[in-house]
Every structure is written in C-alpha cells, then in structure tokens.
Nucleic acid binder design. Structure first.
Lengths: 121, 121
DNA sequence: GTTGAAACTATAGTTTAGTATACTACTATA
DNA sequence: TATAGTAGTATACTAAACTATAGTTTCAAC
C-alpha cells in the first residue's frame, strides 16, 4: 500500500523522519493543547464549558490555543446566533483521529512509568 | 488483560487522561528531544556524533537535553576510559519502545497534512 | 439605567526555553 | 612547549510561552 511505502521512505532518512514527526509535535505544542483536545474528544463544547473543564487556563490562553488549533485544522468554531451569542468548538475528523496518537502516548507512558519504578527499587 | 483495563479506566476520566498523556509529552518536550531520540534510534552515538547529526544544536542544549533524557530513563550514558575519554549515549528499552509513539505521530501527521491540503483546494 | 451572561481582548509583567560565544580539563603526539 | 581531540561548562543575552488582572461588546431582562 502507498501509506506503508511513504512511511518506509521517510523512516529511512533520519532528518526527514524528524521533520515529519515535528509537524505532529507542533500541533500539540504547549501547555494546554492536549488538555483542550482531550476535553473535546468527549464531545463539542462551548468556550465557557472548556474554561470550566480546564480549571487554571486563562481566557487569553484558551482563546489563543483555540485559534491555533483552528488554524491547524484540528477544531472548527461555530457561532450560533442565540442571545447572547454562543460559540461551539468541535474537533475535525483529523482532530478526532488524533485520539489514536494520544492513546499510544498514554500506553507508552504507563509502561515507561512501570519500567522506571522497576529499575529503581 | 490488565493493560486494557488500566487504559480503559484512565480513558473514562478526562482529567486523568490528560495527566497521563502529559507524562509522555513532558518526556519529549522542547525543540531538540525528538531529534536526539530519532538519531539514537539508528544506534548508539557519541556526543560529537550527535552534534554532527543535529546540525544547529549548541553544546549547551545538547548536554542539557541529554541530561534530561537520562534523568527520565530514556537514555543511558556510558563513559569509556579511552584516551581521550569517549562517552556513548544509547536508548533504554523504553527509549527504543518510543519509536512506536513516533511512528504513530508520523502516520497521523501525514494523514493530517493530506486532509488539510484536501480541504483548501 | 443597571445588572448579567457569553465570549472574548488589552496591557503589562514574569518565567522558561533557547542562542551566542568563549572557555575548561585531560592527555597524547609533534 | 604548542596543538589537537573529546566532552563538555560558564556567562550573558534574546525570544517565546505563559500569567495576572482588568476591560469590552452585545443584547435582554429587571
């Protein structure tokens, strides 16, 4: 399949590999993006709901990170003409697909923690 | 199996999920760590070899990042009593296992790029 | 005409990350 | 005695990320 050969060819070259991986790292770069994405994996949310779910984020950071995620094609922002206006944020298809990446990170993190505890006792 | 149930229980709770995922993000946090890990995936390397393979890294950053990675159980540092002394850095088992995380990132990144190109044409 | 809700923005400051450039310690060989 | 190789450290700086706190807009209900 094409996907396999594309990955294979990138994996052969250390510098291309790093560039492609960094593309992904940049999308979740920073202190808050993983939290926002994780929160949105449980369903679309309004600005105020995100603020409540991510307790210590400032409004400035929340709106900046949401703008970044929107610019990167991770979330879509929808304004509803209710009174007062409400805004909903939802993951794109790519955004939802990112759960697989987070799950693999989670799994590795759990194993890694075990291996560290095992090696220091 | 235990691993499944552990993951399932973490995935049920948004805040625990974020905490566990952040453990992993912190390990590769910063501009250079993914590059160092990627380079070491191709085999153990000496300090000077890493410096050549990662062209723009300063010696200060390289030694800082290597210290971080060592402290996090990602690499082991071995001093050989050659003349002059040589130092080798090698990934731990966890470090090598991290390739799976990077591969999933790579794969998602390639798909994501396609979906962005597809949506703007 | 004041209050309140929603979704932010503005300004200023602190903290952390990263860069630039020079220097050190050790020892072997010329 | 000077030079070179290896693996760094030291000092000072700039830039990016993040925080704190207050203010803005819009419209409706009281």
């Amino acid at each position: 399949m094409k996907k396999i050969s594309e990955m294979e060819s990138i994996r052969e070259c250390s510098s291309n590999y790093i560039l492609a991986v960094n593309d992904t790292i940049n999308v979740i770069h920073g202190k808050w993006k993983a939290a926002i994405i994780s929160s949105l994996l449980f369903g679309k949310k309004r600005y105020g709901e995100l603020q409540k779910e991510i307790p210590k984020i400032t409004p400035r950071m929340l709106s900046k990170e949401l703008r970044d995620l929107e610019a990167n094609g991770m979330v879509v922002r929808t304004v509803h003409d209710t009174i007062p206006v409400t805004v909903e944020y939802e993951l794109t298809q790519s955004g939802y697909a990112f759960q697989h990446v987070l799950d693999v990170m989670l799994e590795w993190g759990l194993e890694h923690r075990k291996s560290i505890i095992g090696s220091t006792k």
